[in-house]
C-alpha cells in the first residue's frame, strides 16, 4: 500500500492500484520464478508497473531534453521537521510525469535508463523531469520554511 500511495494522486487511486496489482499477481502467480528473485520484489514490481499504467492514463509524457543542470539547495532540517503526509502532499503536487520520474529515481532507486524503458521516454527526458521535480520541491520546501 505504501508503494501505491507514493505514485497515486490520492488514497482511492492507491486502493485501485493495489487491487489491480493483486488481481494481476493472483492471475500470474504460476509465472513467478523464485530463482530470479524473491516474492516481495516481484510483487513490488507489479505494483509499480500498475502505478505507472495509471499515471500514463492521466498524463502525457512529452519528449524534453535537459540543457543545463542546476542542483537545488534544500535545507535537510526543514524536511526532517516536516510531517510525512505534508511531504507526500508536496510530491503529489508535482506534474504527473515529473512525479513518476521523481519517485522512481529518488525513492525506488531506478536509473534513468530503466525509467526511460518503463515510461517510454529517453534518458534525457527522464533527467529533465527529475531536474524539474527538484526545482519545484525546493521552491515548495522553501515556502514551508518561510
Amino acid at each position: 500500500m505504501a508503494i501505491a500511495i507514493r505514485y497515486a494522486a490520492d488514497t482511492h487511486e492507491a486502493a485501485d492500484i493495489l487491487t489491480q496489482a493483486f488481481v494481476k499477481m493472483f492471475r500470474s502467480i504460476h509465472t513467478f520464478d523464485d530463482t530470479k528473485g524473491n516474492f516481495h520484489g516481484w510483487l513490488k514490481r507489479i505494483i509499480i508497473n500498475e502505478s505507472l499504467d495509471h499515471i500514463k492514463q492521466r498524463s502525457r509524457f512529452s519528449s524534453l531534453e535537459l540543457d543545463t543542470v542546476e542542483e537545488p539547495v534544500v535545507n535537510n532540517d526543514i524536511i526532517e521537521k516536516t510531517d510525512a503526509a505534508a511531504i507526500l502532499e508536496l510530491v503529489r503536487q508535482l506534474p504527473p510525469a515529473t512525479h513518476a520520474v521523481f519517485v522512481l529515481y529518488a525513492i525506488d532507486g531506478y536509473t534513468h535508463k530503466e525509467i526511460g524503458g518503463q515510461l517510454g521516454i529517453s534518458e534525457g527526458t527522464s533527467k529533465w523531469h527529475l531536474s524539474e521535480a527538484r526545482k519545484i520541491l525546493q521552491q515548495k520546501i522553501t515556502a514551508i520554511k518561510n
Binding site: 535545507n75 535537510n76 524536511i79 516536516t82 510525512a84 529518488a106
Partner: peptide
C-alpha cells in the same frame, strides 16, 4: 540521489 531526497524517501 541528494541527501534531502533520501530524507524524503525515508519520510515516505
Amino acid at each position: 540521489i541528494t541527501p534531502y531526497e533520501k530524507l524524503i524517501a525515508a519520510k515516505l
